[in-house]
Design a binder for these strands. Structure first.
Lengths: 115, 115
DNA sequence: GATACCTGTATACAAAAGGATACTTAAAAT
DNA sequence: ATTTTAAGTATCCTTTTGTATACAGGTATC
């Protein structure tokens, strides 16, 4: 039998790996933030995130849609016009994104200080 | 000139990408947690994290050491014995890891509910 | 009729991350 | 003398991620 705290440790690992699967990688949170910020159209999102390419953006949007964080709506058929918006559920990401933002800012200072 | 909030948005993105660079990926936080938990020796850490391999662990430890989160000490030369410990600075990761753990647990429920 | 706009997809490729397995070095245990 | 242990490294391979560029399909504009 596995000790209680060992079991809890394994669950912790799994939960964090699940989170990483959904919002990990270089682009997923930036895409969410961009849409959250008001960029609803593909090319606007594309332009708002430095160095992202259309292929990567397309894939990330699909992944986020599958994970219920972004919704995609066809607002006009001719011409094709799509709108991306964040879901209500997506707002929960803020609880993770905010700490990450703060930690990143602090880390930059830390690293530049030691040199 | 870029508007103020646009500039702040770009900084946000960069901060999050910096964080992702340091602790992103499948294994980095699990490794930190394992060491924090008391696993100090290579093979103990290896055994504590399901499915990680020695090659990957070796690389992750090096990366974490370079980013001041883990420290590596040679405790005995013959035989070689190394000890890994978390740095004081590493404790700041908890501010990110905890929300990720919670979000991951909630997400699993969310996904299983919709099916 | 030619060209540009929008929202992507298709193709080809390069780089990074992750995985499987064997090996090393030197001491300690049997 | 052989095996085991510790802490990795070396080699090769697969998968994922990212990049570059071209193209599609339909509308609108010149």
């Amino acid at each position: 039998m596995m000790p209680q705290d060992e079991k809890r440790f394994q669950e912790k690992i799994r939960a964090i790996q699940d989170t990483m699967f959904v919002i990990g990688g270089k682009w997923k949170i930036p895409v969410i933030l961009s849409v959250y910020r008001g960029n609803r159209r593909f090319n606007d999102i594309l332009a708002s995130i430095p160095k992202i390419t259309n292929r990567v953006l397309s894939k990330e949007l699909k992944h986020l849609e599958e994970n219920l964080l972004i919704s995609r709506t066809i607002v006009s058929k001719y011409p094709v016009r799509i709108e991306y918006t964040v879901t209500d559920y997506c707002l929960s990401i803020d609880k993770v994104a905010k700490p990450m933002e703060e930690w990143g800012k602090g880390h930059k200072k830390k690293i530049s200080k030691q040199s």
